[in-house]
Design a protein around this nucleic acid. Structure first.
Lengths: 165, 165
DNA sequence: CTTGGAATGTCAACAAAGCTGACATAATGT
DNA sequence: ACATTATGTCAGCTTTGTTGACATTCCAAG
């Protein structure tokens, strides 16, 4: 990158270009959530349930507190969602082994099944977008998204990624 | 499934890679809305008001129906938001010239001021992310986002972009 | 000119999912 | 022993979405 603040770079840093990026994020996010929303709408669940399922699936045994940090909601709000998931037998809450105040969260068989169904749909869209845009575009996509995150959330993102399969 | 499109492509189409993309979208969107949310929280407005202001600013004179299509909410929901914006003197609703059933929406001076304040903050974050990632990454970012949109919304995105300054 | 349909607005009721504040319980750690 | 932490829960509120019903206004077709 030859010219950090110089003439050429200004081309994609005009307000108009930035505005297009903002609108692209807005419309793309609608697509991003469209398939999960469609599936969830047929059940008694919403986006909040999906998010909980996703991150429990991703880090089995995670604690409530940990999940609060990831999702950025209050414990009351998360608790309402977790309670229904536990009541409906999609999530299991086990008392912590080392610290008995904590609850370790796991998906049950049914929970795994639903999470898979939803994330299959979401991954299918992502896969199609990645294929259409090509590998280099994907790398750029990831770079910009990471740069856009709040620093604290970026750390979480990296941490979760390292846990990952 | 050894070789769908040729070896290299499989690397970023694994479920794990797709999952990381999904999580990147989730965390990045939080960053994307963080600054506007902070500004709006100090007033009586929320994200819905911001979205209305943004697209009215973008396409002055747009109709209610047009806005409904862009935002993807019900007219009742949008109407509640528009009513407060009109009452507070941020938006002006003029009866259509050719079709008097329609309302053409415009920002007032105050509306322009608030929209600018919010979008300045949002553009600043976008600008920082673009700078950090570099021009090639930005191109890829945009390509993947466009590929991720629902076809109908992609058309709107293009249409709005062409109106743009 | 009348009438059907479209665009808009409004009222009422409701749901999802966020929030704050307050309080209880149990376990940890100093 | 005591303060702190992790969690759960109750009550009440806000924002933003939803349906359904109904009025108004106006264009356009018969």
């Amino acid at each position: 990158m030859p010219d950090v603040q110089g003439g050429e770079n200004l081309l994609f840093l005009t307000d108009e270009q930035l505005r297009q990026g903002i609108e692209a994020m807005f419309f793309a996010y609608r697509g991003f959530t469209a398939d999960p929303d469609r599936i969830l709408a047929t059940m008694d669940y919403g986006r909040a349930h999906h998010r909980a399922l996703h991150f429990i699936a991703r880090s089995p045994g995670t604690t409530v507190n940990n999940l609060l940090g990831i999702l950025g909601v209050t414990k009351q709000s998360l608790n309402r969602v977790l309670r229904t998931l536990i009541e409906n037998g999609l999530v299991e809450s086990r008392i912590g082994a080392t610290d008995k105040r904590e609850r370790n969260l796991f998906l049950t068989e049914d929970g795994v099944a639903l999470e898979r169904k939803i994330s299959d749909a979401q991954r299918a869209r992502m896969r199609a977008a990645y294929r259409a845009a090509g590998p280099e575009a994907v790398a750029g996509f990831r770079q910009v998204l990471e740069a856009m995150m709040e620093p604290e959330l970026r750390k979480m993102y990296y941490r979760i990624r390292e846990n990952g399969a």
